[in-house]
């Protein structure tokens, strides 16, 4: 049977892009994995053990040395704490805002204001966080001063008990624009008749929100949670400029530890180990996105 020749065209179309991806992304990623296991020419788990049990403030992943200011957590724990606080706050705030903006005059202006955090460089975001929590020029410490809460009326980024919290709150400020935008689109897609029917049936805002809106935007919620999780794991810029992980490692995160190993300690293998650990954490949410994308691409 005289079959048609397989066309070369698709190959020619994808080759340039794949050359880039292979040399810049896939190749180096595999090399990083290799480096993380390779110590003086042997493949071992030695480096992993070393990196995970490290306790010096700038490098600790799990625990800081005894005697330092509480809480004695390392970077990995900070990332987890970050997600535990950031994800629920951003999700609920975004959905709540998206919902009430349907009844707000000038809602597009409000949306645009909240979205600014998504547009500006994260470096600027980090600087503003530091600025807002500064006791001389920032607003947050001064508000607490007025309220008489002495313990919070200081430069948050300089105190180990407060620096991580300042960054997390700042990241809520920066990232709410994301969840708001996703939820606004999702709410927009809900037929108005559903809500009108519920209203005629006698439901108030509270019930409409929790019984009608929240279940209907579940797909959006999943997206917000996954994307926020990825963002929290990869967080770097704002930490670098606001605290550089300090003081005493109290606001350190995985991506920053990786950088410090690479650029300050010049320990490339340890840097590779941290990079691999970080990547392993991003793979479950990433895989979820990938499978979903392939399915919707059909």
């Amino acid at each position: 049977m005289g079959r048609r020749r397989t066309s070369l065209t698709p190959i020619l179309f994808i080759i340039p892009a794949f050359l880039f991806i292979l040399t810049i992304v896939i190749g180096p990623s595999l090399a990083t994995v290799y480096m993380s296991f390779s110590v003086e020419g042997k493949l071992t788990l030695e480096k992993y053990f070393e990196v995970v049990t490290e306790t010096s403030p700038k490098k600790a992943l799990v625990l800081l040395p005894e005697g330092l200011e509480p809480p004695p957590w390392g970077a990995l724990v900070h990332n987890i704490v970050w997600m535990a606080i950031h994800i629920p706050l951003v999700t609920l705030l975004g959905l709540f805002l998206a919902y009430i903006l349907r009844y707000t005059i000038g809602s597009s202006i409000v949306k645009a204001i909240i979205f600014i955090g998504m547009v500006i460089p994260m470096v600027v975001g980090g600087l503003i966080i530091r600025f807002m929590f500064d006791k001389d020029v920032g607003v947050v410490p001064i508000v607490f001063d007025v309220l008489g809460l002495e313990s919070l009326a200081k430069t948050w980024t300089s105190y180990p008990q407060l620096s991580l919290l300042a960054l997390i709150l700042g990241s809520v400020w920066l990232w709410t624009g994301f969840s708001l935008t996703v939820y606004s689109a999702a709410l927009h897609a809900i037929p108005a008749s559903y809500i009108e029917a519920a209203r005629i049936d006698g439901a108030g805002h509270w019930h409409i929100f929790w019984k009608i809106v929240f279940p209907l935007v579940k797909p959006a919620t999943i997206i917000v949670v996954i994307m926020t999780m990825l963002w929290d794991l990869k967080i770097f810029d704002i930490v670098y400029v606001a605290t550089l992980g300090g003081p005493g490692g109290s606001s350190n995160v995985l991506a920053l530890v990786m950088y410090l190993y690479m650029a300050r300690a010049i320990d490339y293998n340890a840097a590779a180990v941290v990079a691999v650990i970080l990547t392993l954490l991003t793979i479950p949410p990433g895989l979820w996105l990938a499978l979903r994308g392939v399915r919707s691409g059909r």
Partner: peptide, 12 residues
């Protein structure tokens, strides 16, 4: 690949 952190490529 979209989910990867930049840290995974920079050393090599």
């Amino acid at each position: 690949l979209m989910a990867l952190p930049q840290q995974i490529v920079v050393v090599p």
